[in-house]
């Protein structure tokens, strides 16, 4: 399987009221592989700032996502979801490890779901 990931987006459509998240377009990534790669290659301070910005608005973001069924997702909602999934990906790194990698752990890149793209 290829380990290269496409270049992250620079602008993304987002739902009304969440346009401010556009500054984090690079985190609207498609799939676990890309998100793990971003977690591992982004300086922890940058991840921390991203995490903190999203955390502050979690109630509003999740309230919106609660109203989005999993089928037939609009492009804007998909981008919002992707940004949230990246926020989840870096949360452990920021909150528990205070670094990007799992310390003394295996390579996180081994843990990419083989179901990716089928779910």
């Amino acid at each position: 399987m290829s380990t290269t990931t496409p270049a992250p987006p620079t602008t993304v459509a987002l739902p009304a009221g969440f346009e401010w998240l556009g500054r984090y377009a690079k985190w609207a990534l498609d799939g676990e592989r890309a998100r793990i790669e971003a977690r591992l290659t982004t300086p922890i301070e940058e991840s921390r700032l991203f995490y903190a910005s999203v955390l502050a608005e979690v109630p509003a973001i999740m309230a919106h996502l609660l109203g989005c069924p999993v089928d037939d997702v609009s492009e804007a909602d998909e981008n919002l979801l992707r940004i949230m999934l990246s926020y989840v990906e870096v949360s452990n790194a920021v909150e528990i490890y205070e670094q990007a990698e799992v310390p003394d752990g295996a390579d996180l890149r081994l843990f990419v779901s083989v179901l990716e793209g089928t779910r």
Binding site: L66, C68, P69, V70, L80, L81, M84, V88
Partner: peptide
Amino acid sequence: KPTNLAERV
């Protein structure tokens, strides 16, 4: 199974 995107998160 998640039924909405918040559950997906």
